[in-house]
């Protein structure tokens, strides 16, 4: 009986040693722990650099003014603005409404961020000298 127990203990010892030899990384992970340390780290966020844009005051009334409706081509934006045109003409005396997509079809473009095209469109709209631009965007 004692011999059988001795054999069992010996076998288990041999298996454990073999496991440590075969998988040394497992044994090291289980017995070591990464220590905390003091770090000096450079901030990856960087700073914002923006030139302020001059914002002109809005008119105090739209009566007798020219309003440009600007549609960027996204679905239903034109339908929305057409309703805005109806309401403006109903409720604002002497307002003149211009629809960008009729007078400057090249500005109908989802642009999605292209700066150069945005500036071209702004210039094309400015040619009509509106007092206010109402723009519909997004999905």
């Amino acid at each position: 009986m004692k011999q059988i127990w001795m054999r069992w203990i010996l076998s288990i010892t041999v298996i454990v040693i073999c496991l440590f030899i075969l998988f040394p990384h497992v044994s090291s992970v289980s017995v070591t722990k990464e220590t905390k340390q003091e770090w000096e780290i450079l901030n990856p966020e960087g700073v914002i650099k923006i030139e302020a844009m001059k914002i002109n005051p809005h008119p105090s009334t739209l009566e007798g003014k020219t309003v440009m409706l600007r549609w960027n081509g996204k679905h239903n934006g034109d339908k929305f603005l057409q309703r805005v045109e109806e309401l403006l003409k109903e409720r604002v005396k002497g307002v003149k409404v211009i629809k960008s997509w009729e007078v400057a079809p090249e500005t109908v473009d989802p642009i999605t961020g292209n700066q150069e095209r945005s500036q071209e469109f702004a210039k094309a709209i400015a040619k009509f000298k509106p007092d206010l631009v109402i723009g519909a965007q997004s999905d």
Binding site: P44, E45, G46, V47, H58
Partner: peptide, 28 residues
Amino acid sequence: MATEWKPEAKLPPMKPVYPAGRMKLKGT
């Protein structure tokens, strides 16, 4: 908005772009 809007917010103050800020941290 067409007739009464006035700007309220202001841009945040601009900081020098260089050098990058540094952080002191402790940990793994």
